[in-house]
Amino acid sequence: MSAVAVLSASQVGTFSSCSLKWHFRYREKAPEERRSVALVIGSAVDVAIKTGVHLLRSGEVRVEALETERVFQAAWDAELASNKIPIDWGKKGQDGQREMALAVTRAFLDAEDLPERVARIRSLDVRFELPVVDPVTGLEVPGLRLLGFLDAIERTPEGLRPLDYKTAASRAGYDEQSLSTHLQGSLYSWALHQLHPEDATDEMAFQIGLKLKMPMLEDRVVTLGESARRRALLTVLHAHRAMDLGVAFPQPSFLCGGCGYQRRCAGWQDQAGPPLALDPFARAVC
């Protein structure tokens, strides 16, 4: 039986970008040495947006009376209060980063078409935990479940689609080609098809708060059909297999700068465990 029983979409994403980071975070459960400011901003903005959306949906506040800065400040304060890891505030410093986070929140909550955006939302923070189906055999993989949270489910005239709120420093990774095989998006689309087989469409929406000089909100809607979902599920299965085998090695990339395990990674070669166990099911390839 596999040692990894429940995988989240973000775990698979982490493993895909760096198996060693996954190993530190999810297997060793090692505390991060420092926290990237991008995560702090992302988390605070996410909470502020959802608070704003709930206030509007509940009728507690009308759109013209929504106090964006107040909503943001509560989310920001809570984020900092709950954080116990040193934050790398970067060149902008804490105040500069707060300003940026507030500006990005404004891009979402002060958008002219906010009422239409809110009206499309059917539900927020939808948790799923589903048995993983092998797309090749069509059978459930024994003992493996995929866990995740959809930021929101939107209803459009065509049916339902997942919506994910993002913050990003640039548009890299949000072009049409990158999104056409977006791992997290494809897994969310698959989950929605499992949860609502009748109404789910192949669309996935992203609302991206761009942390540019002039922060702005941009929309992306991508079609993630059967092929993208199959690719994502196969990625999960292969990642799961590698995790089980203990595959973990440094994968240097532009992400290393924001990684919370830089020191641990630098000394990995001195701490690495025994050689990998042989995979008894592997076929020899010559």
């Binding site: 608070t51 709930h54 809570a78």
Partner: peptide, 15 residues
């Protein structure tokens, strides 16, 4: 309770 918890409670109340 954190704003995240309050938001999740609101979301669950709808679900």
């Amino acid at each position: 309770a954190s704003p995240k918890q309050i938001n999740y409670l609101r979301a669950l109340s709808q679900q």
